[in-house]
Amino acid sequence: MIKEMLIPIKNCKLYAKLVGKNNGKPTIIMESGYGDYSKAWDSVIAEISMLSNVLIYDRAGLGKSEPSPNSRTSSEMVKELKALLIKAKIEPPYILVGHSFGGVNLRLYATEYPNEVCGLILVDSTPEDYIERLLPTMTKEFQQAYNKQFVYEGNYDEFMESLKQLKESKRQLDVPLVVLSAGKKAHYSEKSQMLWNEMQKEISKTSSKGQFLIAENSTHYIQNDKPEVVVNAIKALVDNI
Results as ranks from 00 to 15, higher is better:
residue 205 K to R: 14
residue 31 E to P: 09
residue 216 E to M: 14
residue 143 Q to C: 05
residue 75 S to H: 09
residue 22 N to K: 14
residue 98 G to A: 13
residue 231 V to H: 09
residue 35 G to C: 11
residue 192 S to M: 12
residue 201 K to F: 11
residue 73 T to Q: 05
residue 34 Y to V: 07
residue 222 I to Y: 00
residue 19 V to C: 13
residue 230 V to P: 09
residue 113 Y to C: 08
residue 64 K to R: 14
residue 47 E to Q: 15
residue 13 K to V: 05
residue 216 E to Y: 10
residue 137 T to R: 06
residue 26 P to N: 08
residue 104 V to G: 08
residue 127 P to V: 11
residue 97 V to L: 13
residue 155 N to V: 07
residue 230 V to I: 13
residue 115 N to A: 06
residue 70 N to D: 14
residue 10 K to N: 07
residue 92 P to H: 00
residue 188 Y to D: 04
residue 8 P to R: 13
residue 150 F to M: 01
residue 132 E to W: 04
residue 216 E to K: 15
residue 55 L to K: 01
residue 42 D to M: 07
residue 29 I to T: 04
residue 99 H to T: 12
residue 114 P to L: 00
residue 168 E to D: 13
residue 66 E to G: 09
residue 62 L to G: 00
residue 49 S to E: 10
residue 195 L to N: 15
residue 37 Y to N: 15
residue 238 V to L: 01
residue 133 R to E: 12
residue 115 N to P: 01
residue 189 S to T: 15
residue 68 S to Y: 03
residue 44 V to E: 03
residue 30 M to K: 11
residue 118 C to F: 00
residue 94 Y to M: 02
residue 116 E to T: 05
residue 221 Y to P: 15
residue 92 P to S: 01
residue 95 I to M: 08
residue 140 K to H: 13
residue 36 D to F: 10
residue 146 Y to W: 13
residue 27 T to S: 14
residue 230 V to S: 12
residue 153 E to A: 15
residue 231 V to P: 08
residue 207 S to M: 02
residue 143 Q to W: 06
residue 18 L to R: 03
residue 25 K to G: 01
residue 51 L to D: 02
residue 74 S to Y: 04
residue 96 L to H: 03
residue 154 G to R: 07
residue 211 Q to M: 11
residue 238 V to H: 13
residue 93 P to V: 01
residue 236 A to C: 10
residue 230 V to Q: 10
residue 134 L to Q: 07
residue 132 E to K: 12
residue 126 T to V: 14
residue 31 E to H: 13
residue 93 P to E: 01
residue 27 T to V: 14
residue 21 K to T: 14
residue 174 D to V: 06
